[in-house]
Computed example of a mutant assay.
Amino acid sequence: MVFAHDTEAALVAAVALANSAEQPDTLVSTDQVAEFIAEQGYTGRFDADQAELDELRELRPVLRQLLTASRDDAVELVNSLLRDARALPQLVRHGDMDWHLHAVEDERPFATRIVVETAMAMIDVIRADEMSRLGVCADDDCRGLVLDLSRNRSRRFCSTACGNRAAVAAYRARRSS
């Protein structure tokens, strides 16, 4: 494991949320918000309404900016996001998770909790000087974000589909020459 479990989980969720803006957009209904919440294992307050959906959709470019920023720019963004949310880090334990950090209460809006959890995770990424674990998909036709948690830092594509598409294109290029 590269980072603590809660850091990895927050980064995976942030990348998934940011990538939901890519075509086709996979976050257009409150049902899709409920699916995202279930897939990412979030707990706490969920309003399951249009306002929450709108807040999450507005958060996607903020997360993309944070996750693709240079190390120094990421520091400024993290500090700003945490300050704006009035985050107060505390150790908590719930469900099957052992002690981990929460910086806002479970009753705060879902979008606020996501941005704060992502900012807290980015603290670990920045301090460990591991910004290279975040990037953009190597597929020229894709803008998806990539979180590389592999030991050998070999992940280049945001999804299996993009990796397969690149492999097929490379195969066809070799066959035609």
Results as ranks from 00 to 15, higher is better:
73 D>N: 09
51 A>W: 01
142 C>K: 00
176 S>W: 01
106 D>R: 08
174 R>C: 05
164 N>F: 05
93 R>Y: 00
88 L>Y: 10
171 Y>M: 10
75 V>Q: 08
50 Q>S: 08
24 P>M: 03
112 T>V: 15
157 F>E: 10
125 V>Q: 08
130 E>Q: 14
84 D>T: 13
28 V>A: 05
134 L>S: 04
113 R>V: 13
155 R>V: 10
109 P>E: 11
170 A>D: 11
171 Y>L: 07
24 P>R: 02
17 L>G: 09
55 E>D: 15
38 A>S: 09
52 E>F: 03
62 V>R: 13
51 A>K: 07
33 V>H: 04
136 V>E: 01
59 L>W: 05
12 V>R: 15
24 P>W: 00
49 D>K: 02
116 V>P: 09
39 E>D: 15
28 V>H: 04
150 S>I: 09
33 V>S: 05
47 D>Y: 01
10 A>K: 08
165 R>K: 08
29 S>D: 03
133 R>A: 04
166 A>F: 03
86 R>A: 15
163 G>V: 03
52 E>C: 06
76 E>D: 13
51 A>G: 04
4 A>M: 11
24 P>T: 04
98 D>K: 02
18 A>N: 12
9 A>T: 15
1 M>D: 13
76 E>I: 05
32 Q>C: 04
130 E>N: 04
103 A>P: 06
62 V>C: 06
87 A>T: 09
169 A>E: 10
53 L>R: 04
4 A>S: 15
32 Q>I: 02
